[in-house]
Design a protein around this nucleic acid. Structure first.
Lengths: 137, 137
DNA sequence: CTTTGTGCAAATTCTTTGCACCAAA
DNA sequence: TTTGGTGCAAAGAATTTGCACAAAG
């Protein structure tokens, strides 16, 4: 994913593509690790020395408002962000703290009898445990 | 649910049933609203005037360690607690902030091809949107 | 020019920690 | 009398807010 692709993507959501915003989106597109605000800030800071954490927060909140990214509440400590807005599950390793993508959700997950009582805008399926790598250590 | 039932329940998990702990467990058993720490504290404070929020935190963390309650990460702002440790989904209303129980999860939700790469200890299926009551207002 | 975006510092909120006192075994 | 529990005050960490300056249309 290039800077220009991130730029175009933002325009699709009617988000004015400032340098900061485009950099944040480019980062999310290239790092499917569901980064925290701090990780994004630390990664972009060297390239944009004036960048502030406030701007990263502002930017991500704007992206969420516009539907361009999804916020994951999988990690109790920090919010995590995902530019992949398709329906897929996540795994959180309690040992290393990494969040990994799992498969797309089966449509049957959404076939819930009570659903007529709710207007559902998003779904999160989160698995918790230990990943392969942490298990052998 | 009576105080004595909560008392017995704690003993099953090898948790020493102090007055504070038993009161917190009794509250969780009688209020299936997935309360926050603050809600629990506010509710019990009149009955136990010396109660501190620290004790509520200590107590809930102990319950989680012992497997007697489940922590929900559905709400970005506050941790929520559920004495029902069975596999069931939750709905979070973005309008009123209430968390309601949905059905038990279908076993097929757990049949994920990548699961051999992970040791899964818990699962959370969370729906977000607007509830019936908020929709009509 | 006029609106929008950025970023510093301060404020807020949630949660944990250190420590002294209290209670139970 | 020794271990474990409670609760105050303080510390820590994540996020938001107020505001002045900068940038873009």
């Amino acid at each position: 994913m290039t800077y220009m692709q991130a730029h175009r993507y933002l325009m699709q959501f009617a988000i004015r593509p400032s340098v900061q915003r485009t950099a944040v989106m480019e980062y999310l597109m290239n790092h499917k690790t569901h980064p925290t605000v701090d990780e994004i800030y630390m990664a972009l800071s060297p390239g944009i020395p004036t960048l502030s954490k406030t701007t990263v927060y502002n930017t991500l909140n704007l992206f969420i408002d516009k539907g361009a990214v999804q916020m994951l509440t999988i990690d109790e400590k920090n919010a995590r962000y995902d530019a992949d807005t398709s329906r897929h599950a996540h795994f959180y390793c309690n040992s290393c703290g990494k969040v990994t993508d799992l498969m797309e959700l089966k449509p049957t997950v959404y076939e819930l009898p009570e659903m007529k009582d709710y207007t559902v805008s998003s779904v999160q399926l989160s698995f918790y445990g230990t990943c392969k790598n942490c298990r052998k250590n």
